[in-house]
Design a protein around this nucleic acid. Structure first.
Lengths: 148, 148
DNA sequence: CCATAACGCTTAACAAAGCAATCAATAGCC
DNA sequence: GGCTATTGATTGCTTTGTTAAGCGTTATGG
């Protein structure tokens, strides 16, 4: 045994989060497997559908994607006619991304399966506990615990 | 606005988990940036340090890594002398991974910073809430909500 | 025994993450 | 106005995730 093993090894939040994410995303990936969109594209579509057109920086933040990743994903999504991009006339650095009818249709096609999945999760895990978990996670995200 | 936007757009557990993970891992990545280990190697080292030598399949599961990823990571870690591998004489398909003194040192070097980080998180977020969150996450991981 | 299946790990191929550098457009400042 | 700094997006490079196939080893069943 190692010296460091002697310390009380508390549960690891990073690994626990990873595991939980895998548990949740597995079924979602299954759901999306058939259609031409993957997890990331689905997140992009959902954000655009829920919030409307926006520039890429904001979209990246809301969809939890890095700008470089988003750039490449949007290129593919444009080719699939899921979204369209147009440079913002007010600031020609910006490019505004808009969901297309095809993109809307993908969302709608998966809406039922998604609701069904979520409903099963609520049943198996407990609706109140799920609410609590989401609250705690959102608070964690807003917690600042950096140096200084 | 879209048709689908009309539905009550519940909070998305996948994205919330992603965000929370990013919040937690950001500072950890900063901590590790200087040393030669990244997030994944750090997870491998921690698992080996806490639980002792083990074969790769178990290590992969505990460190939340896929076997192919682990293969590549271990190759690099062997070159860095962080771990060593030896085929299990009892079952020569298995290869047992052991943390090295260099690997131990990396853990020890970061132990303080890691504890400090975790302590600040406990302070900023609340120790009890953190416990609750970990409990809820672990339960979620054990929740089966697949079809059928 | 021996053929076959199952297992543990590796390799291969491609998409994506992460990070740094780059480029074009805008903003600030003298 | 013209120079520099900043911003939004893209590209390049390396590592990892994901899936499927492959190889050697061990278990199983006739």
């Amino acid at each position: 045994m190692s010296k460091t093993t002697m310390r009380k090894t508390g549960r690891s939040l990073p690994i626990t989060l990873l595991r939980a994410r895998e548990t949740v995303m597995g079924p979602v990936r299954e759901m999306l497997a058939a259609s031409g969109v993957n997890e990331q594209k689905w997140r992009v579509l959902r954000v655009l559908d829920e919030t409307g057109p926006m520039d890429q920086s904001l979209l990246a933040e809301k969809a939890c994607l890095q700008l470089p990743s988003l750039t490449r994903i949007l290129r593919a999504m444009e080719e699939q006619d899921l979204v369209s991009r147009a440079t913002d006339p007010a600031d020609r650095r910006r490019s505004i991304v808009t969901i297309s009818d095809t993109g809307q249709k993908v969302i709608e096609d998966h809406a039922d399966a998604n609701r069904h999945l979520f409903a099963r999760l609520e049943t198996a895990y407990g609706a109140e506990r799920l609410e609590t978990l989401l609250d705690l996670l959102e608070d964690l995200t807003q917690t600042d615990f950096r140096e200084g």
